[in-house]
Simulated scan of single mutants.
Amino acid sequence: MSWLTEYVRPKIRGLLQREVPDNLWTSCESCSQMILIKDLERAQKVCPHCGHHMKATAKERLDWTFDNAEYTRIELPKSPVDPLSFRDQKRYTERLKDARAKSHLDESLAVAHGKIGGNDAVVAVMAYEFMAGTMGAAMGEAFVAACRLAVLQRAALVVYTASGGARMQEGVISLMQMPRTTIGVEMLRDAGLPYLVVLTNPTTGGVSASFAMLGDVQLAEPEALIAFTGPRVIQDTVREKLPEGFQRSEYLRDHGMVDMVVKRPELHETLSRLIGLMTNKKNEEAKPALETA
């Protein structure tokens, strides 16, 4: 072996080869194409190849929704922990501890207030990363707190839904949050404030059967699963083949359950326009009464 192969060639290879970090790339779960993580973050986690909307964290949705990602998070009300002393493979308290450590959230709902297109707004985001966004007593309390804050600030309430349904570890207490959250929506209606719902993938179970379907305007991200019971369970029950795209956002829009299907990068502008139209209309209706008075 000559000095060229033993010494020079390894040196050249060392100069040409650069270490590539393991977290530089990811693959789309829909089309399997490789995507630079920086490009994916810039596109708000929408695949540039096929347009697939990947799951987003609660913090990411708050950053994308508020003007210049400027907002103030609120402290959520305290609720009883593990009211049923529930245990399956693990204690419920241990599951909560693990979920909080993993998600850096106290519960499956994050609430903040700020501006959307210059309009005052309160935004509540369901965190699928926290026990699949399941609905328990603490989440119900957080939702009502968001409604009260919106009424106090005379602001619109925007809710992003993403949930696997009721939280089995809280039994009937979880189901009680369905009427409780509905009362929160009625508070907004009584105050004449806009309530906008953005349905994301997936929105199922008790969430879809309560506050998720009560918006003044129902928006949804493309191809989001929106259902009470999953399509496989329904198909096994009725023993019939379901229509193409059944329970997806486009199907629900075509059948009158959803008003608009909006791509994620267009949501901020759409919400801004809707809140502006709804609040300006209310202000104009209030003017004649004030002038008469």
Rank of each mutant, 00 (worst) to 15 (best):
L199V: 11
V159S: 03
S108K: 08
M135W: 11
R189E: 12
I173G: 06
A56M: 14
R13A: 14
K287I: 14
K281C: 10
R100E: 03
E129Q: 07
V238Q: 11
Y92M: 05
A124E: 04
L199D: 06
E41Q: 13
S249E: 04
E60Y: 07
P222S: 10
Q177K: 06
C47L: 10
E141P: 02
T237N: 12
P194S: 00
K281W: 12
T204S: 14
Y71D: 00
P288H: 05
Q235N: 02
A146C: 02
P10A: 12
P202N: 01
A166L: 15
R91N: 10
E29V: 09
E141S: 04
N68C: 13
T161L: 07
T279G: 02
L252C: 01
I12R: 06
V159T: 15
G14H: 11
G164N: 14
L199N: 07
E60G: 04
A127T: 14
S85C: 10
P179V: 08
R61H: 13
G133S: 02
V111M: 02
M187E: 13
P80Y: 06
Y251F: 05
G192I: 15
Q153P: 00
I12G: 02
T200G: 03
K11V: 14
L16F: 12
Y195G: 04
G14C: 06
M135Q: 15
R239N: 07
F86I: 01
M1V: 13
L277W: 12
Q247P: 03
S249A: 03
E70T: 09
F228P: 06
R239C: 04
Y92P: 09
V217D: 03
V207M: 05
Q218C: 07
A112D: 02
S249G: 04
A142L: 00
P21C: 09
A142V: 00
K281I: 12
V262I: 15
T200K: 04
L175E: 09
E266A: 13
D67C: 01
K287M: 10
F130K: 00
C31Y: 00
Q169N: 02
G51S: 13
D82M: 04
D22F: 02
P194K: 00
A162W: 10
D63N: 11
K287V: 14
E250V: 11
M1G: 12
L84R: 12
T72E: 12
R95L: 05
E129I: 14
S163W: 00
L109V: 07
R273E: 13
G215K: 00
L199Q: 08
G256V: 01
L109W: 01
F86D: 01
S32C: 08
L149S: 01
M213Q: 09
L252V: 01
S174N: 02
Y128W: 10
K11L: 14
K38Y: 10
I234L: 11
S103L: 04
A155Y: 10
E240F: 06
W25Q: 05
A58W: 02
V233D: 03
A289V: 10
G118T: 09
D236L: 08
K55G: 06
Y71H: 00
R239E: 05
E244Q: 13
T65Y: 00
G51E: 15
V125M: 06
M278Y: 05
P21T: 07
P194R: 00
Q218W: 05
R95H: 07
A69I: 09
